[in-house]
Amino acid sequence: MLDFILNFPQPIKPSFPFYTSDLLVLGLAFKAYKSRGLTHLGIASSVATGLIHTHHPTLLPFSLLAGFYLTSSKFTKLKADIKASLTQHPNGEGGGEGPRNATQVFANSIVATSLIFLHTHFYYFVDSSYPWSNLLLIGIICQYAAVCADTWSSELGILSKSNPILITTLKPCPKGTNGGVSPLGLGVALGAGAFIGTISSLFLYSPTQQFLQCGALIAFTSVMGLFGSVLDSVLGATLQQSVASVDKNIIVESEGGGKLTDIDATKNPDYKVVSGYNILSNNQVNLLTSAITTAVGMGLWYLFFLP
């Protein structure tokens, strides 16, 4: 019944030498250095990750990585001063996202990077048309749908005019709360999934001749992006602790996506626990979300699109 989307052709191979795409990786790294979007170790890890993506036999993985990085960087800087005033760091200074570190880079890419290794093996040494090869490719796409949706919804959802609601209680919570959701954030997550699906469809289909296939893939990745964002909110609301300053009633967040180790809100009267247990860091939640979303996406593809 759904065979029309099953046997998509292999992604388009680049018509220029691979070292050209390697130069694109170095270009993105230089952009990150100039804009101070990444720490030095973050830049080194992004270069290593990017080179693995470009040495896939096609440009699809690198295009997903570049699309995710460029848009997320843009949205991170959007109204950064306003977002910084909505949270604070444990030292009492304003919050906001600083340069991302190596741990954050790997948390948002390691699942896809692992699948790229496997898909490259199938492409060159097994059979590029083997159905499992397509399944690995879908996993790569789903991972980027998840991390892109999470980042977009976090960076744009916090700008919602109304306070979010905690996904586990459906009660209002301060902006920046792990597990807080808003119509804007959920809508943005859906759009992020569609964005990743659009990039993917340009490599997998001919948009003019295979319109239905393109639309079906975009719809699929949109759902996976929304699923990833909701899953991230559930994990964040339960396994990641959100702490607020009693005086300001704003969320206290650790820099670099780490755990709040400097504050014991259960014993300090200046702080209160808004939600969750201090089990996972934000980076660990992101990694777990991308891994689960990838597995679910591959599972759904196996059930509905593989014979």
Rank of each mutant, 00 (worst) to 15 (best):
D3F: 00
L6S: 13
F8A: 10
P9S: 14
I12Q: 10
F16W: 15
P17M: 08
F18W: 10
Y19T: 07
D22M: 13
L23D: 05
L24E: 10
V25S: 09
V25F: 12
A32E: 02
Y33M: 10
K34C: 14
S35W: 01
R36S: 10
G37C: 02
H40W: 11
H40K: 13
G42K: 09
A44C: 09
A44Y: 10
A44V: 04
V47M: 10
I52H: 11
I52L: 15
H53G: 05
H55C: 03
H55P: 08
H55L: 07
H56V: 07
H56D: 15
P57Y: 10
P57H: 06
L59K: 06
F62W: 15
S63I: 11
L65H: 05
A66E: 05
A66Q: 03
G67I: 12
F68I: 09
F68C: 06
T71G: 07
S73T: 08
K77V: 01
A80T: 09
A80K: 12
A84P: 03
T87F: 08
Q88E: 14
H89G: 01
H89D: 01
N91D: 15
E93N: 06
N101Y: 11
A102T: 00
V105R: 02
F106E: 01
F106P: 00
S114F: 15
L118V: 15
L118H: 01
H119Q: 15
T120W: 09
Y123G: 03
V126T: 11
S129D: 12
Y130G: 06
P131C: 10
L137K: 14
G139V: 13
C142S: 15
Q143A: 08
V147P: 00
C148Y: 04
T151L: 07
E155I: 08
L159D: 04
S160N: 15
K161L: 08
S162P: 00
N163R: 01
P164F: 05
I165C: 11
L166F: 14
L166H: 06
I167M: 13
K175E: 11
T177Y: 09
N178R: 03
S182D: 10
L184F: 06
L184S: 07
G185H: 02
L190Y: 03
G197C: 09
G197L: 13
T198E: 03
T198Y: 11
Y205P: 02
S206I: 01
S206G: 03
T208L: 15
L217C: 03
F220R: 06
M224Q: 14
L226Y: 03
L231F: 13
L235Q: 11
A237V: 12
A237P: 06
A237G: 15
Q240T: 02
V243L: 06
V252I: 07
I263E: 06
D264M: 04
D264R: 03
T266D: 14
K272P: 00
K272Q: 07
K272W: 09
S275H: 05
S275N: 09
Q284S: 05
V285L: 06
V285T: 04
N286T: 02
L288M: 13
I292F: 14
I292N: 10
